[in-house]
Nucleic acid binder design. Structure first.
Length: 209
DNA sequence: ATATCGATTATCT
DNA sequence: GATAATCGATATG
């Protein structure tokens, strides 16, 4: 089922208090929200349909599990900031920090349903936006959505997404998913059994199955 | 449809 | 030196 945003509908930026909670609470609330990138006159928008929570302390799969380093520094800062890392020599992945004060939790954005500007996303991804199959290829997967939105460590890491000046932010338009499914996280070897992946049930833009 | 594999580099041991 | 929160291509059923 699709869930596009109507042109008439107003969207509102999500504030820092939203992210100042346990990532397991934030995650389901993040589903159905919009990720927005302002690029000059254009605006890229995708609806968040899949995320994973990383808890920091006690979560061996979390980048922050072994303590503070140059790479994961933003996770130890205030909530609502972008943590962008580079992986497999190829891909950037976008996380949003949660909680403040030594609880370095975050949420990995894993898949979006493209809302607009589709042409711009397709250009960034270097694929044609003609078929439905290609539409899925735009933003289904953390590396894909980062490429579609032009997200890089250099450009976005450490950015405060809740600041009104930020060109990258999360917004809400009143949409709420009918049902949320919770599963094991994807692509990790440590702490792989924990049920910390949240998806909008039945949404076709969720990665994998 | 699922399975396997190569790419390519920042980061950490 | 090994690893990694992935992707796209190729092979096979």
């Amino acid at each position: 089922m699709k869930s596009g945003v109507e042109n008439s509908k107003q969207i509102r930026r999500v504030g820092a208090e939203f992210f100042d909670r346990d990532p397991r609470r934030v995650s389901p609330d993040l589903l159905g929200k919009l990720l927005v990138r302002r690029q000059g006159r254009k605006r890229l928008i995708g609806r968040i349909v899949e995320v994973e929570a990383y808890l920091g302390t006690g979560d061996l799969a979390a980048h922050a599990a072994a303590g503070r380093t140059a790479r994961n520094d933003v996770l130890f800062g205030p909530p609502g900031h972008a943590y962008v890392y580079f992986i497999y020599g190829n891909h950037y992945c976008l996380n949003i920090s949660c909680l403040r004060d030594g609880m370095p939790g975050c949420i990995l954005i894993r898949a979006l349903e493209p809302v607009g500007d589709i042409e711009e996303m397709a250009r960034a991804r270097r694929v044609s936006a003609q078929s439905a199959g290609d539409l899925r290829k735009l933003t289904s997967g953390p590396g894909r959505l980062a490429q579609a939105f032009g997200i890089t460590r250099e450009r976005d890491n450490g950015k405060n997404l809740t600041n009104s000046a930020s060109d990258l932010f999360v917004a809400e338009d009143g949409f709420h998913p009918r049902r949320v499914s919770i599963t094991k996280r994807v692509g990790i070897t440590k702490a792989a059994e924990m049920p910390l992946r949240y998806v909008i049930a039945g949404n076709e833009f969720v990665s994998h199955g």
